[in-house]
Design a protein around this nucleic acid. Structure first.
Lengths: 188, 188
DNA sequence: TTGTGTTGAGAACGTTCGTTCTCTATGGTT
DNA sequence: AACCATAGAGAACGAACGTTCTCAACACAA
């Protein structure tokens, strides 16, 4: 296995473990056991656990972005593209492994003591807000609609994570529909 | 100082420290140093750090509930009562010590490994949803409005925490206004 | 075959944490 | 003054963590 592939494998395994049990609760020894690599090999791929954490965040950003854009791209109309975000959330919430937004979790766990984690979380959220803003602009919606829709998505994620059921996506979608319709009628 | 007062003091100090730096990052030794009590005294008041964490969550629930109800009670009309929630959030977000919802943070940090923390977080959120539902009912709004408004409040909290600015409260309030108006017009 | 560099397995190290224990000083009671 | 219970200060303990080191096994070149 190439070094690149091994790195990806460690990051993927770390992502799953961090997601299910939190970052600080997962030790390097468990990473070694699950990955089948030696500690020496892992430390040959990454200089520290902190570097693995950041790599996991980068991966999460990529997976999230690809997932949501793929889902949005399938929708045909500008307004159904916006609603597709919440359909993506609904599917995500129903996965057994769903445990809340990894960035919110990482920020809550390490944001105050690991500035780089806070930065990645902030960048991830800003990136999503900008994406929503572009979709809103594409639908000729008013600028203030974008942060509102983003807040709905954020709220759905934490509500689904803590309550443990996926209804939040449905509620957020319904709210988004109302906001979009209201925004469009005012814009036209 | 009475034992009750000392207990409160430890919980209050722990709340502040946990809020600013996360739960796991704060050790018992720091609690000792800041509180001025001996470790022995602290362990006389609480059987373990886990018990302190739960006491902090209970305190957070009490403070939050009192704060938001006080703000809501100041509003006169049923629909402005609903909007008062977001005004309360706006004030909270602007506090220097604001670091996101303590329950979301605790859940993210410990929910997967400390079931009691997850239960408290869930109970807290359910309690808030029920509160919103009562306010919505008082305003003769449709039942589906309540979870939508709750999701807006959740999203505002995480967005404000990660982005570091209080605008999220304003956006959430504006969205809530639209949802409330739409809900009322359909109900009437 | 011999020598050499590399690697895996995991022991070891230094630190930190939650918790308990020791020891000393103190204050009240007789 | 003599005794005892109490409590503070922090050392000590066992466990767990991230990281590094040791050492034996192995692959491969000469």
């Amino acid at each position: 296995m190439s070094e690149e592939a091994e790195r990806d494998r460690v990051v993927e395994i770390s992502d799953e473990l961090f997601n299910s049990r939190g970052i600080q609760s997962v030790g390097m020894d468990e990473l070694r056991r699950v990955s089948g690599l030696s500690l020496k090999a892992i430390y040959g791929l990454f200089p520290s656990k902190a570097a693995i954490i950041l790599a996991v965040l980068d991966r999460r950003h990529r997976v999230w972005t690809e997932g949501v854009t793929a889902r949005v791209d399938r929708a045909l109309e500008p307004d159904t593209k916006l609603l597709a975000i919440y359909d993506y959330l609904a599917d995500w919430f129903r996965e057994d492994s769903f445990n809340g937004c990894g960035f919110i979790n990482a920020f809550a766990e390490l944001g105050a003591v690991a500035p780089e984690v806070a930065v990645r979380a902030r960048e991830h959220k800003i990136d999503f807000q900008n994406y929503v803003a572009r979709l809103v602009a594409g639908a000729n919606g008013p600028a203030e609609l974008a942060p509102q829709l983003a807040i709905l998505a954020e709220g759905a994620q934490t509500t689904a994570a803590i309550s443990g059921n996926a209804d939040a996506a449905r509620h957020a979608r319904a709210a988004a529909e109302v906001l979009i319709r209201a925004g469009m009628s005012r814009a036209s």
